[in-house]
């Protein structure tokens, strides 16, 4: 009997809450709030709240056209790869289940001791999906878009991983779930302290952690394809980039992935840096703050060229994350001793 209950719970977990419908709805809301904010800051009216759903419903009702010259299997597989990566990463994230703060957080059925590494790869899978889409569509715009996506992935993945290593070293765990539990006890990663840390070192340590956070946010911008790193989809140069040839249901799948991305990436950021919630409400507020930061950066920036973005990630983002990581390690070393 308990087995049946567990299966039912797992299905609810995967399909309704927090994976699946709930995440999709929240992602769509975050995407809409970004679009609305952007419109208002540009003196425009902006879309109504149901715009994202309307778009997706419309796309799923339209004919899907697959170009004759495209590689058919890969062309169909690409949006599925991206969606799989996004949804699986979502299932691994420990998202609070209670409205009011409680003692026991919800644990993902899939969670294990080193799931952060898997999440890192799954998030890259979303971009791999886009690369496959661009490369298989046999369109020059798609090919250029895919090559730009590869460049961006190569340059942003290193600072992204280094920032995560910084968090992991401080938390002494590879499990996102344990990180969440630990932060619930000791306060969010960004401002938490270690026993025996004197105030001067504490301030220094927070500065290093903020370095990690900024570097991480920059990489999240690149992963979301937002300005100044929306180079793969630069519509003035290469139309829709990798998605140029997509239509109908396949494009709809990409749109679903995009909406989910707006929940997964802010949620991942919150869990790593300012997490520790046992209530879904504070968790969503924190996610919204991250969405606002991303939206604001997107609104006030033009677009870099791909070579400039590559240099930016190698010179600024990687440097920031390395400074954060090494500084963090030195502070910990000073506290713990040899």
């Amino acid at each position: 009997m308990t087995d049946v209950m567990e299966v039912i719970l797992a299905i609810i977990y995967a399909a309704l809450y927090p994976g699946g419908l709930f995440a999709f709805f929240m992602g769509a809301m975050f995407l809409w709030s970004y679009r609305k904010l952007r419109a208002r800051m540009q003196s425009r009216v902006g879309p109504p709240w149901y715009q994202v759903f309307a778009d997706i419903v419309k796309l799923f009702n339209k004919e899907t056209i697959i170009p004759k010259v495209a590689h058919r299997t890969l062309f169909v597989l690409a949006p599925i790869i991206a969606l799989t990566g996004c949804v699986t990463a979502l299932w691994l994230l420990p998202i609070p289940a209670h409205v009011l703060p409680t003692a026991e957080p919800l644990v993902s059925p899939l969670a294990f001791w080193a799931d952060i590494i898997v999440i890192l790869y799954l998030l890259a899978l979303i971009e791999v999906g886009e690369i496959v889409a661009g490369a298989s569509s046999a369109s020059p715009y798609g090919a250029v878009g895919a090559s730009r996506r590869v460049n961006l992935l190569l340059s942003s993945e290193l600072p992204f991983a280094v920032s995560i290593v910084g968090v992991v070293i401080f938390m002494k765990t590879l499990s996102v779930n344990e990180m969440m539990v630990k932060q619930a006890k000791e306060g969010p990663f960004l401002i938490t302290s270690v026993e025996g840390l004197d105030p001067m070192l504490y301030v220094l340590s927070v500065v290093f952690r903020i370095c990690l956070f900024i570097s991480f946010l920059l990489c999240v911008l690149a992963k979301m394809g937002k300005r100044p790193f929306d180079i793969p989809e630069a519509e003035c140069e290469i139309l829709a980039g990798p998605l140029t040839e997509y239509s109908g249901k396949l494009l709809g799948l990409f749109e679903v992935t995009n909406a989910l991305k707006w929940f997964v990436l802010p949620a991942f950021t919150v869990i790593l840096f300012i997490g520790g919630d046992t209530s879904i409400i504070t968790f969503l507020i924190k996610c919204f703050v991250i969405v606002l930061i991303l939206a604001y950066i997107d609104i006030i920036n033009p677009r870099y060229r791909i070579d400039q973005a590559y240099k930016f990630f190698m010179k600024v983002a990687l440097l920031l994350s390395l400074v954060g990581l090494i500084g963090e390690m030195l502070v910990l070393y000073a506290v713990v001793g040899v």
């Binding site: 952007r38 800051m41 540009q42 003196s43 425009r44 100044p228 929306d230 630069a234 003035c236 033009p302």
Partner: peptide, 16 residues
């Protein structure tokens, strides 16, 4: 020109 380099905010404001 601003739209082409991806600065849509400035594009909208200039046109306003």
């Amino acid at each position: 020109a601003m739209h082409i380099i991806g600065f849509d905010t400035l594009f909208m404001q200039i046109w306003r």
